[in-house]
Design a protein around this nucleic acid. Structure first.
Length: 159
DNA sequence: GCCAACGTTGGC
DNA sequence: GCCAACGTTGGC
């Protein structure tokens, strides 16, 4: 099965790439996604070995800050049935889970972030979902060539 | 803090 | 099923 490419947004105030870096095994579960489109992707499309662009949003410098790998495919987000969790949803139960998540593991943290502004200026990235006006999907597919180009930009910036 | 874009809710 | 009201996202 072919590897797929994704972009996942997180607010660094809540959970940054440095948080991922300091988690055990540099792994985390991607809990709390409460959007059906994003859920469907994680539940149905994500596979172990897929590659992820780790994106910081809603912050001073929105940017792709590194990459991660999918280490566990979609499974129910149990936070949804934990009343004490911020992500609690009474309509989700263990018998009939409504929300799903995946596990990811840090691959690389970029020496320099690839900023949103930089990406906007790149003709090669023109078709990217992230750059679409009004796009706010927190889990979104990325084309291989886009993924590769962003890695290339990160390398150039590191020099 | 502003505001455009989008998703969800709920009355009808 | 329509659509107004509301809440959220996220760049600026």
């Amino acid at each position: 099965m072919a590897v797929s490419y994704w972009l996942m947004k997180t607010e660094p105030n809540t959970y940054s790439i440095d948080d991922l870096s300091s988690d055990p095994d540099q792994k985390t579960c991607w809990e709390g996604v409460r959007n059906y489109q994003a859920r469907n992707l994680m539940r149905d499309e994500f596979e172990v070995g897929d590659r992820v662009l780790f994106y910081h949003s809603a912050c001073a410098e929105p940017a792709v800050v590194g990459t991660a790998k999918v280490v566990r495919a979609g499974y129910p987000d149990h936070h949804a049935w934990d009343k004490r969790s911020n992500y609690f949803d009474a309509k989700s139960t263990p018998e009939n889970p409504r929300w799903f998540m995946v596990d990811i593991q840090l691959d690389t943290k970029f020496a320099q972030p690839v900023k949103l502004a930089t990406m906007r200026a790149e003709p090669k990235l023109e078709g990217m979902e992230l750059l679409r006006k009004g796009s706010r999907l927190s889990v979104q597919p990325v084309r291989k060539q886009e993924f590769d180009w962003i890695l290339k930009l990160a390398k150039q910036l590191a020099k």
